[in-house]
């Protein structure tokens, strides 16, 4: 316990030190030490001060909720879709043999590259961002599920069969729990992928969202706002990943301690 606390303390100190240094070299603390132009590197305190006007304009809430909805809907649909296809193809070998090259080539495509074509298909609204978010999550979950079905421990299958278990019992006691392990192991990655998909989608074309606002601010050389949004995105992502970690630890508590340690 002592060690965990001291580590947490040292980590916090490091983060504070980074910000302090950053503040210092951008003219902070009244020392007038400016290493680069404020148009390139904003001072952290003035970037945070930007939070006031951003929130007062009502845009902060709108952008946050837009991006959150896009990422979450994309995440949930991606998990459902990926798990469903992974299970289906994991069980149905002939179909999987046929379809595998198609999926592998789609997967090898950089997700971001499809953003421009999603725009004319689905418009400037949230649908195109959800689609991009879905597309990034889908393959992670699909491949994990597919491998999960394929790598079920044969001895567990035999144990259930010998006891008289049928296909339903096998699915309930062996295949699904085993596959869930793989899906949840991919959850953390999926969460940050979903957020990336949403933000990149907003870059390409949108009318609200953190990525959209970031892009506009960058175009206007509004560096303070750019840094503010980057900080918000960081906090946002860390929070989501932290939640995913908790969910994972709770659902996979039967596993040896590697998961529970975090």
């Amino acid at each position: 316990m002592n060690r965990t606390w001291s580590l947490a303390l040292r980590r916090a100190a490091l983060i504070v030190a980074i910000f302090a240094l950053w503040e210092l070299v951008t003219g902070g603390f009244g020392l007038g030490l400016v290493l680069t132009s404020p148009a390139i590197l904003a001072r952290p305190s003035s970037a945070l001060a930007e939070l006031g006007p951003y929130a007062a304009s009502g845009l902060l809430w709108r952008d946050l909720s837009t991006t959150l909805i896009e990422a979450m809907v994309g995440l949930v649909l991606g998990i459902i879709g990926g798990a469903a296809l992974g299970l289906a193809l994991g069980y149905w070998r002939r179909a999987s043999e046929l379809i595998e090259p198609v999926l592998v080539s789609l997967n090898s495509l950089p997700r971001i590259a499809v953003a421009p074509i999603l725009l004319p298909w689905l418009g400037l609204g949230i649908a195109s961002k959800i689609a991009l978010s879905f597309f990034t999550v889908f393959f992670v979950v699909f491949f994990n599920t597919y491998l999960g079905v394929r790598s079920v421990e044969p001895e567990l299958v035999k144990a259930v069969q010998v006891m008289g278990g049928d296909r339903m019992h096998l699915a309930r006691f062996v295949v699904l729990p085993s596959v869930f392990t793989w899906i949840f192991a991919a959850l953390r990655t999926s969460v940050s992928f979903a957020l990336t998909g949403a933000v990149v989608g907003e870059f390409v074309g949108a009318s609200s969202g953190l990525g959209y606002r970031l892009n506009i601010a960058a175009g206007l050389l509004d560096t303070k706002r750019v840094y503010l949004i980057l900080l918000i995105l960081m906090v946002f992502a860390v929070t989501l990943v932290e939640i995913a970690k908790r969910v994972e630890a709770r659902l996979l508590r039967w596993r040896p301690s590697a998961v529970l340690a975090g």
């Binding site: 006691f173 039967w254 596993r255």
Partner: peptide, 9 residues
């Protein structure tokens, strides 16, 4: 090897 289901108590 025991072949117990690891996800069950």
């Amino acid at each position: 090897r025991d072949a117990l289901l690891p996800w069950q108590t």
